[in-house]
Write a protein that binds this DNA or RNA. Structure first.
Lengths: 96, 96
DNA sequence: AATATATATGAACAAGTGTTCATATATTCA
DNA sequence: TGAATATATGAACACTTGTTCATATATATT
């Protein structure tokens, strides 16, 4: 394995910050199967639209989700298999 | 795969909180090869002993590290292969 | 018992974070 | 163009978190 530098470890911490909030984990998890609109996500999680929108922006900036517009609606989906894998490994850990 | 409940996702977020701080990631990373004493860790990370001790308690409570006493010295080590694997996956993600 | 060394802990403080509210922007449809 | 719907954004606030300082506890040594 490549040598892990100090800087890499800072970036890893930054990455994990995204997964360190239950709202964001729930958002990411509900994107496991399908893409979903902002309002769908808000309904599913029973939270208000603004809160979801703020969190989606964080996930977007970190490139963990991507989105596409279709008319008025914006659909979000996971950007990367890594996201799925990291969360699955977290789930496995806590389910033991 | 087992059905993921809402509670599981909360626990997953709690788990990832441990990895969401660069001090804790650096502590865990420096335990990859060897167990290490508190002062060794503090020296390696160039941080004061109290800060390290506080963080080690958090990691201990979450069962990510374990420790053993040998005289005055307390040696910490990773508690679980999952910890190593999750961090490695994080490293791979950011190194791409 | 007294001293030195290793680690842990509590209080305090600064900095960061997530949600809400109000409002702005963008798109569609009548 | 005006109204309706979907999403985004900024400000404010409460809450959490990481570090430092001072000090406590535990062990070893003399």
């Amino acid at each position: 394995m490549k040598k892990t530098t100090e800087n890499t470890l800072y970036d890893v911490a930054e990455l994990f910050k995204n997964f360190a909030d239950s709202t964001r984990i729930r958002i990411l998890h509900c994107l496991f199967e399908n893409e979903r609109s902002v309002n769908e996500i808000a309904d599913l999680l029973n939270m208000n639209q603004s809160a979801i929108s703020h969190q989606l922006r964080i996930l977007k900036n970190s490139k963990l989700v991507k989105n596409r517009r279709e008319g008025k609606t914006i659909y979000y989906s996971l950007d990367d298999d890594h996201v799925y894998n990291i969360i699955c490994q977290g789930i496995e850990h806590v389910e033991e």
